[in-house]
Design a protein around this nucleic acid. Structure first.
Lengths: 197, 197, 197, 197
DNA sequence: GATGAATGAGCTTTCATTCAT
DNA sequence: AATGAATGAAAGCTCATTCAT
């Protein structure tokens, strides 16, 4: 008979917490909320995560790794930089639409509740798998002469700020069209901003 | 003898709350914190604002109006759209550097603690003075054929997401250079993304 | 109409907490216990004392000062050292009998829960008013050639350990006679131990 | 092949618990703490001791028997009462110095957490092996006319309170000299207090 | 208008003990 | 005997808000 392993329970908590944090924010979400959603006692939660903060950090690293992996897959494709941009935008928007927890977590929790990620996540430590992959994307784009050779952060801020902004507008139901609808124009805007001049 | 008017006291609270909310976030900042910073009793605070949430909303509108006004000034200048972009970027970064409360409030409080702005601020109601001015900027840019005629939100998301992203990186001390340093490249990126094709 | 001042409320808390701590110990006594005994809400308790630990420290200093004062009164009397010993023993036993909170607090809380008095009460800092007065007693006894000139701690440990031991036996209802009954023999024992040889 | 008997495991728990209780106190020490120190699961702990309280009681009796035995050895020696006092002081201080768990347990746990020893340890039941031996010491001292014939508790309180007090001061690092240093003066003080007048 | 003591619900976290395996 | 996940009650503490003065 298949038992639920401890690792699976951890996964259940991660999944439940991700949903709640991304919907309600870090402070509004309580440990009882999370425990109830997993179907577990409050006390038992602490057998899996030592504190709410540590859970939040683990969530962040989990997302950064997941996103990093998705971007790596795109980086490894044998397509033009312009096409890669489209793929990244597409992947990001699909995620934001279909399982919005991760990206909303980034926007709602990571970007805002910086005090939570105090020690151990200084700078971009906890999101490095993701950032690293974006660096690779840019460097390769420059190397093949598709992208204009500019400062990394100017390019990174454009790309991620833009996508984050759109997802925020989407999440707030401000966009008149589905996210899908914007993929092309946004990819083109990004490409035009970054391409070789 | 110059008495302190009720309006001036409200201003004092707004100013103190803005600093605290933008630095510590909505939930970490307490009413006693704010009252102490203004030099006022907790009880008296409630003679000026009915609740913490209403204060937060009023702060938001105050900022939206302020930012809207600054952008209107730029809109009214007789310069090219490219120059206007530079001016907006420049204004935004200078603000983020010199009196970061407003922009950090946008990033830390408005974007994340959406539950706080629940009723009364649906959609972009509470930030309309600012959004309206950005719409004018785009429409005029399109009208004079400087900007490519595209969907407003694609353009707005680019502009504001980009600037917000950079200010976040700056606030987190991730940027290796001062914000000032990025003005030109960022303005150019934005212009290249939006200009007539 | 006589209002209860804040200082009086503090006094009420000190008094209630002293009773509870001395009867039940530090960890068994809860803040709700204390608040209820004073007739106050839990939240309000924290308007008077910042934490349970700080309350415990303040209690300790309060007692040390009180005991110090009582011993000073005896020290200032114009009587022989032998008589002073009797007076101290007598005062100590009367206190232990009539308002046992203070001495039981010393025995139950201060001597045992040392972790609580960690910083700020290292060594004998928090009990110095009392210890100082005991030093004066010994020095004067030696000066007038009533007491044998020996190491302070050897004498202090005898005096206070002895009295503490008796009060413990009394508190545990092990003594067959009332405390009063032992005054003479104990004073004599102490005097014989410490007197000039 | 040498198996570990149930009795040996109990011994392991007793030894670990003694160290932890004496260092951190009864309430700060948790069952997981103890189990970990023995290298045993929490659940299994309860196969050996029915509760934390019962463990504490058993510890106490274990110590009382051990101390009783050590004093009996001294009682049985063919030496003067004055010498016996020195031997007892010496034994007590050596223990407090070299394996302080037992004596610190007496001071930190038994004397303070009386609620723990509620039923089953009323009066001095749980420490009788030790107290009995002290009674024998006094009675014999009186019988051979070395000690003044006085109430047992007056003498017992002096002896044990004194030693306990010194060990407390030692444990709190208040004594300027090592415990060893005080043996002579303390033995003499005790002898002078108790000897025939 | 101004004060700040008072409330009380709710939060995070702990831990002795149990029990299915 | 042995494991350790699970429970759940309770602890210390916080804070938006109220209200008597």
């Amino acid at each position: 008979m298949a038992r639920i392993t401890k690792e699976e329970k951890r996964g259940g908590i991660i999944s439940a917490a991700l949903k709640l944090f991304s919907q309600k924010g870090f402070y509004i979400t309580t440990i009882p909320d999370i425990a109830q959603k997993v179907g577990m006692s409050v006390g038992n939660f602490y057998n899996y995560f030592a504190s709410k903060e540590l859970l939040a950090k683990e969530l962040l690293m989990y997302i950064a790794e997941y996103l990093g992996k998705r971007i790596r897959e795109i980086n490894e494709k044998d397509i033009s930089t312009e096409e890669k941009i489209y793929e990244i935008v597409s992947m990001y928007f699909t995620m934001a639409d279909e399982k919005p927890e991760m990206i909303q977590y980034f926007l709602r929790v990571y970007l805002s509740n910086r005090e939570v990620f105090g020690e151990g996540c200084e700078g971009m430590i906890c999101v490095s798998p993701f950032v690293t992959e974006m660096m690779i994307f840019f460097e390769e784009g420059v190397a093949v002469n598709d992208l204009h050779n500019q400062d990394f952060f100017s390019a990174f801020g454009l790309f991620m700020g833009y996508l984050g902004g759109m997802v925020f507008l989407f999440g707030e139901k401000i966009l008149p069209e589905p996210l899908e609808w914007y993929k092309t124009s946004i990819s083109q805007n990004i490409y035009n901003a970054l391409k070789t001049r």
